[in-house]
Design a protein around this nucleic acid. Structure first.
Lengths: 178, 178
DNA sequence: GGCGTCATGTAAAAGGTTACATGATTCC
DNA sequence: GGAATCATGTAACCTTTTACATGACGCC
């Protein structure tokens, strides 16, 4: 049940509508979670029933009304409790690694194309992360845990995407030499 | 629907019972997929109905009868087709990264403990991967695609777990200095 | 006229986990 | 006596995705 807590952390950092949360999550939410909008609306309703979040309805002209959600005191307590409880290690489920293991069954040209595309996308993400890193390092509040922890979370993304980048190079080198 | 293809790749590499496939998958199946036994038995039934795998029933003394599954010709064709079709990039869903982003809400002692435990487990896995790597490098058939592709798949595991190892060091250094 | 953005949701289907069920053997 | 290994499966539940549904505005 980590979606619940991912939403709570997101709201803890900044209030927002379901729509805004969904947008942040589609881009990977601080590089750590992915979720779609129906999932988020459903979970926000459950969290409201629990009293862990609450919302203010805001009418808008020329736009549909929106609900701005906030984490409650109870929600913050529940979140702290969750953070102090160890979580399971995330299972690896990457279909591309299955394909790699059976790469000898692939049409080499198509496979090389897919690898190259992946490297481009992966490197773009890495570049984006590094840009954020730079901004964070210049930020006032350096040394402040509320800046340092998200920074470390970002570092996980940077280090893993750097690893991917090197891996793609190894794969491309092999495929080009075939 | 990657579980299906993960099972097919597994059977393509070596015939086996549902029980054996489940065992390999619990350990991460070549570091790329995780699945539980009810899921595998269910999928094997579907694959049998499709004619993509078949089994021989083998009676055993002092042990329950077992079904040894094999990939069929049709199954191999379907697998090749899948491999030539690009797959989506795997979403990141790591609850621990959520916790990291909100680490300032944690009880430092408990958090540091969890990170240290994770580093130990992660480094053990890395050591295990590196042992396999060594064995593979000495293997006859070096240069053979059926050895090289699984090797590259393993390399993905090694590079990402090395990245994790460095990341844990960064995190531990910060937490110890708090 | 169609697409993208803002903004909410419901419903059905697919994918995955956990609990239940059985039963013999071997090892501590 | 209890736990682990081998070997199969079903059923209930939870999680996630995809499709459906609505509606106004601005842009090309």
């Amino acid at each position: 049940m980590s979606l619940r807590h991912a939403i709570m952390v997101d709201l803890w950092r900044e209030d927002g509508t379901g729509y805004e949360i969904a947008k942040r999550f589609q881009e990977g939410f601080g590089f750590s979670w992915k979720a779609s909008h129906p999932q988020i609306y459903t979970e926000l309703k459950k969290l409201t029933d629990l009293g862990w979040v609450e919302f203010k309805k805001v009418e808008q002209e020329h736009k549909p009304a929106k609900k701005i959600y906030t984490l409650t005191e109870d929600g913050l307590e529940a979140l702290k409790e969750w953070i102090d409880t160890p979580v399971d290690i995330a299972p690896i489920r990457d279909a591309f690694l299955i394909k790699m293991a059976a790469g000898s069954l692939a049409t080499p040209k198509l496979f090389l194309e897919e690898v190259r595309e992946r490297k481009v996308i992966s490197d773009e993400k890495l570049k984006y992360f590094k840009k954020i890193e730079e901004v964070m390092q210049k930020e006032t509040g350096k040394g402040n845990p509320e800046v340092e922890f998200p920074f470390l979370s970002l570092r996980a993304g940077i280090l893993t995407f750097e690893a991917y980048s090197h891996w793609f190079d190894e794969v491309i080198e092999y495929l080009e030499g075939l």
